[in-house]
Nucleic acid binder design. Structure first.
Length: 740
DNA sequence: GTAAGATGACGG
DNA sequence: CGTCATCTTACG
């Protein structure tokens, strides 16, 4: 931010009499819990206005916030410095920020910062110079280069760099022509508005199920007011088409309405944006962390001025300055990527529902494997539900079989059971594609010294280093630390004693290549380096049938459709169950049902095999029988008995410090200071499962409470009573998902 | 978030 | 006793 524009001087016509200064509260985008008051002698900017004000020794941009009363007397206040020429934040966004700050227990200013992160968006339309052709070209010294530029220029303004690049001359030629009068300079907005969605465009033909669901949603949109609705339908049942209809209805109902579609991952957004464009004839405004500065500013400004009517974005899009948000769709609502774990910790699905509730508009949650939270909300009548039961075009769900690894064990050092190998053999001879799924990047998750038993960990960390054989490096998946794989054990100096333990996808790929040397085998994971092919290329090759066996991590589970894929083998179905956090089984169900759902379609039924050492585990039995609702019901009973969410409340209080003694002392002091309250239990402190990361040690206390007690109030009382020494950092995570 | 004042650690 | 680093506090 450079300089604020001067305070707008919109006095009344009689103007002469100076108005009595008034009080204005301003919230700054910094981790501050409250707004600060200022005097204002001009017109009082309305709530939500972007302003600048002296704050300490400097001038800072902030937002006019609802006043809280008690404050210094008016005479003592500093004066507002300026008002930005930008549309004010809407009252429902202000209410949402206040609510979200109270809920997450982060300072209001920290939440406002998420809204204002687009650094230069407030500068307003900083015009860009562009050029158009004029008629005044007589008497001009003409050169070949000038001629080419004039030919390229027309009535619509284009930038110097754009024109120059087209005819391959320097920008000086363009500027020279402008100075000579043959081109005229015009100012254009560097952030062009987004094309308006065409709401009358005919959507695709809907099945009966889809039609019914779409009409139900449209009716909810028509009715207005807040309601949360689950769109519950298996993969391929056409949830997207259904909520597109809801979007169309919301935007049609009010010509100023805006809608937001939230997606869990950036990777999903690119093909998705195309789908939106096909449906609405215009690409939506995108919002995710990979946008460039200019794209970010454009989306932000056009959302703020209300002209971007449809936004597709990742979780942080929830904090865009919508003028008139009327509908939010949360696609894949169960996805854990909605949980923000850094900075302000929040769950975008829950925040979306709160935003809708405060703004008085509906929120649709879509999933094939809805979260237990959402299912319970439906069961208890807080959310509505529309179901899409039949798979689109009657495609069958794959047959799912369990392979008991205790009975059908692979040879030592191998990971594929004889049963799974036979199935892949069959698929290869039928010229159909197979997917081997293992949610573990790299070659081996653990490297052990055979001589002394030393485990390779990152310096200052307790997390295991994962061998990546393509790069011949050991990598820490938590911090990104990496080192070349040493030849000698760093503990006992034994040479060639470091042994890879357990499989990652690279190791499974190695086994597959040995077993099926004639097959076309590719590896797909989120790692950028290995192999000459990018993720995109591998996905395209898979779709085109140029791969026989794809060995992939989680990235293959999401949103891709492979027409000739008929077999999915899950190498380690038990992987996500270890560690036993409260959502482990649920997550496993969601992930594995999504992966196995990749196999087969109408004309080619698919099958899936899950390798497991615990076939009797309820999750795996439920996957095999396809009985999602029975599984959820059993999970629900388990959670209720233990008083866990959604039947109880949970918060994690995490302490971090380089100084382990201070950490220990503080954790114990906190525990001792925990006030007694009926229905509240404080567990811990316990070391985090990965105790040290980058030298920082972490301990955690968990607060478990009955649903009817306010966790936030309890935590506020508690934490206010304990003096935490400087080097120890405390963060609160309401309703934690990650227990690392 | 940031800058100023307060407190403490080491060096002349 | 002075200077520099680091912690604490306040910002209207």
């Amino acid at each position: 931010m450079n300089k604020a524009p001067p305070l707008t001087e919109n006095r009344h016509e009689d103007g002469a009499a100076a108005q009595k200064p008034e009080r204005v509260s301003v919230l700054f985008p910094m981790p501050l819990p409250k707004a600060y008051d200022y005097a204002c002698d001009g017109d009082v900017p309305p709530l939500g206005s972007f302003v600048t004000a002296p704050f300490g020794p400097r001038e800072v941009a902030g937002v006019v916030w609802p006043s809280k009363g008690e404050a210094p007397p008016l005479e003592k206040l500093k004066t507002l410095a300026g008002v930005f020429d930008a549309p004010p934040l809407s009252p429902d966004l202000i209410a949402f920020i206040d609510w979200a700050a109270a809920y997450t227990m982060f300072p209001k200013g920290a939440l406002l910062r998420m809204v204002m992160r687009v650094s230069d968006a407030l500068e307003g339309p900083r015009m860009q110079t562009a050029f158009i052709r004029t008629d005044a070209s007589e008497g001009l010294r003409m050169t070949a280069q000038r001629k080419a530029v004039l030919a390229a220029a027309g009535a619509s303004p284009r930038s110097a760099s754009d024109l120059a690049a087209q005819v391959n001359v320097s920008e000086a030629v363009v500027r020279g022509l402008a100075d000579a009068g043959a081109l005229a300079r015009v100012d254009i907005d560097p952030d062009p508005p987004f094309a308006q969605p065409d709401l009358d465009r005919q959507g695709p033909e809907l099945s009966d199920d889809q039609q019914f669901a779409a009409e139900t949603l449209a009716a909810i949109v028509e009715e207005g007011g807040h309601k949360a609705v689950l769109i519950d339908g298996v993969t391929g049942s056409g949830k997207t088409e259904v909520y597109f209809e809801a979007v169309a209805a919301a935007l049609k109902k009010d010509p100023e309405a805006q809608a937001l579609i939230l997606l869990p991952e950036i990777a999903l957004t690119l093909p998705f944006l195309t789908r939106v464009e096909e449906r609405f004839g215009a690409a939506p405004a995108p919002w995710h962390s990979d946008l460039t500065g200019a794209q970010r500013r454009r989306s932000w400004r056009r959302v703020a001025d209300g002209s971007a009517r449809l936004v597709v974005g990742a979780r942080s899009a929830l904090f865009l300055p919508f003028q008139k948000l009327r509908l939010i769709v949360v696609d894949e609502e169960h996805d854990n990527a909605y949980k923000q774990e850094e900075g302000v910790i929040y769950h975008a699905r829950d925040m979306a529902v709160a935003r809708g509730s405060l703004g008085g508009f509906p929120v649709a949650l879509a999933s094939a494997t809805p979260s237990l939270e959402t299912v319970v909300n439906v069961d208890e009548g807080r959310y509505e539900a529309v179901g899409l039961s039949s798979r689109f075009a009657d495609a069958a769900m794959p047959d799912i079989h369990l392979i008991d690894m205790r009975e059908d064990a692979p040879e030592a050092g191998r990971w594929l059971s004889p049963g799974l190998v036979r199935e892949i053999d069959k698929n290869l001879s039928a010229h159909e594609q197979s997917l081997l799924f293992l949610n573990r990047r790299g070659y081996a998750p653990l490297t052990l010294c055979r001589r002394c038993g030393h485990k390779m960990t990152a310096p200052g960390s307790d997390s295991m280093l994962v061998e990546h054989r393509f790069e011949n490096r050991l990598i820490c998946h938590h911090t990104g630390f990496s080192m070349p794989k040493p030849t000698a054990c760093p503990a006992c100096n034994a040479v060639d004693a470091l042994t890879p333990c357990g499989p990652g996808i690279e190791r499974v790929a190695e086994e597959a290549k040995e077993r099926w040397p004639q097959a076309r085998i590719s590896v797909l994971s989120s790692d950028t380096a290995p192999g000459p092919r990018s993720m995109r290329d591998v996905l395209d090759a898979m779709k085109a049938g140029e791969i026989d066996i794809l060995i992939a991590t989680q990235v293959a589970a999401k949103g891709h459709h492979f027409p000739n894929l008929t077999l999915v083998g899950v190498v380690d179905a038990d992987l996500g169950l270890a560690g036993g956090d409260l959502r482990a089984a649920e997550r496993t169900y969601q992930l594995l049902s999504q992966v196995t759902g990749r196999a087969g379609r109408a004309e080619k039924p698919g099958r899936a095999f899950l390798q497991t050492y615990q076939p009797e585990a309820p999750v795996l039995a439920a996957l095999a029988s396809g009985d999602r609702d029975a599984f959820l019901a059993a999970e629900a009973i388990g959670r209720r008995d233990l008083g866990f969410p959604p039947y109880g409340r949970l918060a994690a209080v995490t302490l971090r410090s380089l100084d382990e003694q201070a950490l220990d002392r503080t954790a114990n002091a906190l525990k001792v200071a925990a006030p007694y309250a009926d229905g509240v239990e404080v567990l811990g402190p316990a070391r985090a499962p990965i105790y040290r990361l980058r030298g920082v040690a972490r301990m955690r206390l968990l607060v478990k409470a009955r649903r009817n007690v306010s966790l936030q109030a309890y935590l506020a009382d508690w934490l206010a009573a304990v003096k935490v020494p400087g080097p120890v950092r405390v963060t609160v995570d309401i309703n934690p998902y990650s227990f690392l």
